[in-house]
Design a binder for these strands. Structure first.
Lengths: 293, 293
DNA sequence: CTGCTTCTATAACCTGGTGGCATGGACGTG
DNA sequence: CACGTCCATGCCACCAGGTTATAGAAGCAG
């Protein structure tokens, strides 16, 4: 019996979530797709894994048995991938937006001299995973925007802060102002990330800085293009200043905002996982170059 | 990083075999397919796993790291599948040819009374795996033809013996004889199974009963249709008598053969793997019904 | 040197699995 | 009784993964 590990992740998500609909949106697939896939898994195994009801999916005994083993399997697989990466002398650094890692190439260049046999790989992750691949163990370290969900499971060093501004549709009345007051934006429709991103989402909606004024979410996006598209389509979104340097989109303008807190960029790494000395070297370089201290 | 477990099996095979070509035929896929898939795996991982050369594929350090973990992963997955099967009260019985399990349905019917909540599932395997799924842990027990490779890893009970005859093309000169002498067939082209089936292949070519006369293999097949097709196309093949009852093919006839040993049918099960009591019940029934003692 | 063998890589093509959208059906709830 | 919230189904589009045929590289035998 062969399966895709992705299918196992699907299964684990449904098992944990208890509903197809819920799991589907966590996984960013459609509910029918998930439904079909899970059914297909059951057929392959020749075993019913869930009892379906109007209230959701409940694990059968067989399902529980499987659910109790799958997470460990997935972890071991991810660990095997990391081990192979270490053996190949590859350091993987996750990131979410080009702005946060703007100065990293210089660190890499320098690192290449001190550790010539190592290679650094930068991997971008979408915003469904604000941990930039750390959560699923796909990277050795990540440059992240703080705070992010699951942060307590990692060692985090704050690197620098960056003012936040706003992305506006070019035809928006405020698009002509030099700068914008945060309170002027409270009633706008925001482009946000998915609910699974918790405090991260809230930080980018600045819910703590609205005097309790409710948030209006006009679009859920998880990658820069969707995001800019949503803004071009009429939404607004808070964004770090560096966005203006890295992304251009006709119909979208960036304006500084007064009265909203800055974005904090941090370096995160797994707590206490064995890692090569070269990783320390490299990360030290990152902190030295990007850190404000 | 998600992968299909089949890809992991591919990788493990190449790692063990040392050449793509060799692994490909063990896996019954084409060499280009395997080549592409392995390359794809390397790209996904961002890591080179093999060094290619004219003499084959040698693992890199990263490859060795991966190769050291993958087999255990696959085992755990297979075990998880078995565990789910047990939890769902499913007994899986592997078999190779319908003739060997001819009487099993009666055992199943009886078993349904004593253990009504259990279900028995018969799964047919192709002849690339003479252990009928036991080797890869896909079944709880199997009705097999003895001897088969890997047999020593299982507990085997011999059930009954069945005379062997020969499948001949209908236009073959011997097709009109009532019975055939084994020595008359020595120089025919035989339809055989793949080389990976070892002693099993040799038993069906009866290499020990040819007075050292070399075997001529005219076709390699792994399922009944291919097999009968090969015979219709001019090959001959030894076959258990029950074949005549289960398979019909225009252009193929079955004749008894004098001078060749019979086929022994056995019941095999994993040694010392934990298993439900119902399995014992069922297998006892099988032995009682099919066994000659 | 040439031709043969034995590897892997590439090209062109086909199929089926997987996902998306729209919609249906079952069943509590207000 | 209409509505909301689940999961299932039908239809369509796309691409990963398979096939065969062929090329390319490199030892080895004569």
């Amino acid at each position: 019996m062969d399966v895709d590990t992705r299918l196992l992740r699907y299964f684990a998500a449904v098992a944990q979530e208890g509903t197809l609909t819920g799991a589907a949106q966590k996984l960013f697939v459609s509910q029918p797709a998930l439904s079909k896939r899970i059914r297909h898994l059951e057929e392959d195994l020749g075993v019913r894994l869930f009892v379906r009801s109007r209230s959701g999916m409940t694990l059968t005994e067989a399902g529980r048995e499987l659910a109790s083993r799958v997470p460990a399997l997935l972890d071991e697989w991810d660990e095997a991938v990391r081990a192979a990466g270490r053996a190949a002398r590859v350091l993987r650094l996750g990131f979410l937006d080009a702005g946060a890692v703007e100065a990293v190439p210089e660190v890499v260049a320098e690192f290449r001299h001190t550790q010539p046999e190592w290679r650094v790989e930068l991997r971008q992750f979408d915003w469904s995973e604000p941990s930039a691949g750390l959560g699923r163990g796909e990277v050795d370290a990540a440059v992240v925007r703080l705070p992010f969900p699951g942060q307590e499971r990692f060692t985090v060093v704050e690197l620098f802060v960056e003012e936040r501004g706003v992305l506006l549709p070019a035809r928006h009345p405020l698009a002509n102002s030099e700068t914008v007051e945060w309170r002027e934006l409270w009633d706008e429709q925001f482009a946000a990330t998915g609910p699974e991103t918790g405090a991260w989402r809230e930080h980018w909606l600045a819910v703590d800085e609205r005097d309790g004024r409710p948030v209006r979410v006009g679009a859920v996006t998880r990658r820069p293009d969707e995001w800019l598209g949503a803004v071009a389509g009429g939404c607004v979104a808070l964004a770090p200043t560096s966005v203006a340097r890295f992304y251009a989109h006709p119909g979208v303008v960036f304006r500084p905002v007064h009265g909203v807190s800055p974005s904090r960029v941090g370096l995160a790494r797994p707590r206490g996982r064995t890692h090569p000395a070269a990783l320390d070297d490299f990360l030290e370089g990152v902190v030295r170059r990007l850190g404000r201290t």
